[in-house]
Amino acid sequence: MVSALLVMAGIAVVLGALLGFASIRFKVKGDPLVDKIDAILPQTQCGQCGFPGCKPYAQAIAKGEAEINQCPPGGEEGIRKLADLLGKEFKPLSAEHGVEKPKQVAVIDEALCIGCTLCTQACPVDAIVGAAKQMHTIVAPLCTGCELCVPPCPVDCIAMVPVPETVETWKWKYPVVPIKLKEPA
């Protein structure tokens, strides 16, 4: 009886020590939950969620200070993934934060640009090249389509255009044809 107790106590001590060691040895730097949330957010960095970028929004979600349905570029799918990750109820995109749109890129009408550099200061991902009094242009592959550069432009020469589907980016259709229920008349 006593020996059994001793054995059990011994095992408990050893395991406890192991766990303690592991928690120090394998300590994760930063907040893994924030990173997980940030990985789901689309990184458009548009600020529509009410935070200055995706990371701050991720931090707010992790702290429970923001709802999961505030990111329009992420859309329904993003909300679903966040709901899955956090074990929360899915809710539709909050209308006050915007609507889901197809992916766009900004295009500068270069003939009109006066080189005021205001757009470069607005772009969150440094996707615009130019210098004072010089024509500016947007590096399309880097543009996230956040629209932040559009309002500051004093000559309104920035337009958002949808990214067209090409043979390279085209996706095969989902082969399952959904059964349509007849709507009650």
């Binding site: 990184q43 969150p124 991902v125």
Partner: peptide
């Protein structure tokens, strides 16, 4: 999006 995060 990884590239955008990095640039941001």
């Amino acid at each position: 999006s990884d590239a955008a995060r990095q640039r941001f």
